Amino acid sequence: MREHAAQAAAPSLLVAPQWIGDAVMAQPLVGLLAARGERVVALGLPGVAAVLRAMPGIERVVETPFAHGRLDLRARHDLARELRREHFARAYVLGNNLKARLVPWLARIPLRVGWRGEAAGALLTHALRAPPSSRRGDVREHYAALAQDLPPPVLGPGLPAQPPHGVAQPVLRVDPARARAAAQEFELPPGFVALCPGAEYGSAKQWPAGHFAALASLALAAGLPVAILGSARERESARAIVETVRARSLRDMAAPRPAVVDLCGHTDMEQAIALLAAAGGVVSNDSGLMHVAAALGRPTVGLYGSTDPRHTPPAAHRSATLWLHLPCSPCFQRTCPLGHLNCLRALDPQWAWSALSELMAVADGA
Score class of each variant (00 low, 15 high):
E63Q: 10
A67D: 14
H68F: 08
L71G: 08
L73T: 05
R74E: 11
R74Q: 09
A75R: 10
R76T: 04
H77I: 11
L79A: 03
R84K: 13
R85K: 12
R85E: 11
A91S: 10
A91F: 01
N97D: 15
A100Q: 04
L102K: 03
A107P: 01
A107E: 05
R108K: 14
I109D: 02
L111C: 06
E118Y: 00
E118F: 00
A119I: 09
A120P: 05
G121R: 07
L123S: 07
L123R: 00
L128C: 09
R129D: 15
S133W: 05
S134A: 15
S134V: 13
S134G: 13
R136A: 14
E141P: 12
E141R: 13
H142L: 12
A144C: 13
A145S: 15
L146E: 02
D149Q: 12
P151C: 08
P151Y: 06
V154C: 13
L155R: 12
L159Y: 06
P160A: 13
A161P: 06
R173G: 02
R173P: 05
D175H: 08
A177L: 11
A177M: 04
R178N: 07
A179I: 00
A182E: 03
Q184E: 15
E185W: 10
E187R: 14
E187G: 08
L188C: 02
G191T: 09
G191F: 02
V193D: 01
V193I: 15
L195W: 00
